[in-house]
Each structure stands twice: as structure tokens, then as C-alpha cells.
């Protein structure tokens, strides 16, 4: 098609939206709601994922060794741990370091009490590897593996923390996916309906076009433009809204709930929008395209 033809079809598509104001508005509103909710779930989800990641990094598995194990074997075990894909990082805590850590926590303010142990380290057999996971749901796999290793006496794990975090993560993913999928269908349906009304309003014009010798693509193009434009407008509006709302909410949470800032850190709006903007625009344009194509396929056999 020539450039002038493309411009003409784009113009006709925009005119369709205007001629068909009420339905276009309803479609844009639904698209806006869909992308807005998607944006909220995405922002919540991403923030939660980050918090989860931070929490996961704090969940460690501790691996203790058999009495009298050689340093050489401990190093070998370290090598084996390093190879595991579910391991994010690990560090070796010697018996001395374990005692120092213990003293810091339990003898704080009473160094004389700790001093009574002198050279007799009560945690002499407590050298261990502290292992941090990249994915907390893999904890039990790693624990089974460690328990099977020669020279490993005991493995401490945090079953409840791991399970809770994994469960919350899956629940958020499932709920947000379900809502977004439902809204996607509603949006496709509404855009498809809007285009259908446009087709019936312009039925005579379409018939004339076909008799004069318009190609299928020429007849369809304005309706595809209409669907895509609705999708695009319906994704830009919620993005602008979300941008301001997100900033306000984060600022409000930080100022009103000071205690939160020590527990959680919100992702900056720009980081969220780096991903949210392209996804939303692709979603909007995609829904518009699918919605219009579905109707054209069904109601505009040209």
C-alpha cells in the first residue's frame, strides 16, 4: 500500500472512533481498567518478589560436620555445595567464629560470663557451612542432598519459613494471573463489539467499497487501526495514572509508616515502569489487534 493510503486508513480508523463515540469510550474505559489493574498487580507482585528475594536470602540452611572431620573433607564438602544450582552463596563458619557469634548474641553486656569458658570452646563441634538459597522452594532438595554427604552430621533448616514464602508467592502469582486473564478476555470482547458496531454503521460504505474494487486489506485497515488505537489509548491512560499513584503511595507509606522502611524497600517507580510500559503497550495494542481481527474475520467476509 502507498503511504497516502496508509495515512488515509489511519485517518478513517480515528474517524471511526469518533463516529462511534459511546462504544469507543466504553472500550477505552475497560481497557484502562484492565491495564490499570494489571499495573497494580504487576507493581505489587514485583515489590513482593523483591521482598521475597530479600527474605529468601535470609533463610539459610546450616550444615554441621561429624566429630573429628578433617579440614580437607570440609573443603571437599564446600566444593560439592558450590556446584549445586539452588545455592546462591555459602560461607564457612569455624567453631571459633560460631562461638564468637554466640557470645555476641547471648552474652551481650556480660563478657565475664563468656570469659569463664576461656579456651574451652563449648561449640567446638559446631563448625558449619551457612548456605543461602537462590530459590527457597528448593530447600528440601538441598537438605536431602546434604544429609546424604559423607561427613555431614546434621542439617538445620527452616521448613516453615520456606513453605510460607513459597505459598505466598504462588498465591499472588495465581490470583494476579487469573484476574488479568479474565480482564484480557473482557477487553477483547468489548473491543470486538465496538468494531462490530463500527462495521454495522459503515455496512453501506463497505459494500460500495467492495463493489468499486477495494482490496480486503483496504476495507479491514481502518477497523484494525480503530482497535489498535483504542488499545493504545486504553494503555497510555492507566500508565500515566499508575505513575503518579505509585509515587504518591510509596511516598505516603514511607512518611506515615516509618517502621516499614526498616522492613521493606519499595522499588523505584522508574524501575517498575521500565518493564511495565512496554508490557502494557504491547498488551494494549495486542488486545486491540486481536479484538478487531476477531470481529473482522467473523463479520466482514470481504
Amino acid at each position: 500500500m502507498k503511504i497516502s493510503t496508509h495515512l488515509y486508513n489511519i485517518g478513517q480508523g480515528i474517524k471511526n472512533i469518533w463516529r462511534n463515540k459511546l462504544f469507543s469510550l466504553a472500550s477505552i474505559a475497560t481497557m484502562t481498567a484492565c491495564i490499570f489493574l494489571f499495573g497494580i498487580f504487576y507493581s505489587l507482585g514485583t515489590n513482593f518478589q523483591t521482598m521475597l528475594k530479600e527474605a529468601e536470602e535470609g533463610v539459610a540452611v546450616t550444615c554441621f560436620f561429624d566429630k573429628g572431620i578433617s579440614q580437607e573433607r570440609i573443603d571437599e564438602i564446600g566444593g560439592e555445595i558450590k556446584k549445586r544450582p539452588e545455592v546462591a552463596s555459602y560461607n564457612f563458619v569455624s567453631a571459633e567464629q560460631a562461638w564468637e557469634n554466640y557470645k555476641e548474641v547471648y552474652f551481650e553486656g556480660h563478657p565475664e560470663a563468656a570469659e569463664s569458658f576461656r579456651e574451652d570452646n563449648p561449640l567446638a563441634d559446631s563448625a558449619n557451612y551457612e548456605i543461602y538459597l537462590s530459590d527457597v522452594s528448593m530447600q528440601s532438595t538441598l537438605v536431602s542432598y546434604l544429609e546424604g554427604l559423607d561427613g555431614v552430621r546434621k542439617v538445620n533448616k527452616s521448613e516453615v519459613a520456606a513453605k510460607t514464602l513459597t505459598d505466598i508467592n504462588s498465591a499472588i502469582t495465581i490470583v494476579s494471573m487469573a484476574i488479568v486473564i479474565i480482564l484480557l478476555f473482557v477487553s477483547v470482547f468489548l473491543i470486538s463489539n465496538t468494531v462490530m458496531v463500527g462495521i454495522s454503521v459503515r455496512r453501506e460504505e463497505i459494500a460500495i467499497m467492495k463493489l468499486i474494487g477495494a482490496k480486503d486489506a483496504f476495507v479491514r485497515a481502518p477497523f484494525v487501526v480503530e482497535g489498535i488505537a483504542i488499545g493504545l489509548i486504553g494503555s497510555i491512560i492507566p500508565l500515566v495514572l499508575l505513575f503518579f499513584i505509585y509515587e504518591k503511595v510509596v511516598a505516603y507509606a514511607a512518611s506515615e509508616f516509618n517502621f516499614l522502611s526498616s522492613m521493606v524497600s519499595f522499588i523505584p517507580v522508574k524501575t517498575i515502569f521500565n518493564t511495565l510500559v512496554p508490557i502494557s503497550l504491547i498488551l494494549g495494542v495486542g488486545i486491540g489487534w486481536v479484538g478487531s481481527r476477531l470481529t473482522l474475520h467473523k463479520h466482514l467476509r470481504v
Binding site: M1, K2, T5, Y8, E204, E205, A207, I208, M209, I212, G213, A214, K215, F218
Partner: peptide, 20 residues
């Protein structure tokens, strides 16, 4: 079968637009 929302010139031009 003219297009009521377009003037005489546009109705004729429409046939040419359609054939690109």
C-alpha cells in the same frame, strides 16, 4: 448509494482512494 457524510468531491475521490 452515495456516502451521505461526504460531499460531492469526496464521494468521487472516495472511489479513487479505494483503488489506492
Amino acid at each position: 448509494r452515495l456516502l451521505p457524510d461526504r460531499n460531492v468531491y469526496e464521494n468521487i475521490a472516495f472511489a479513487m482512494k479505494v483503488v489506492e
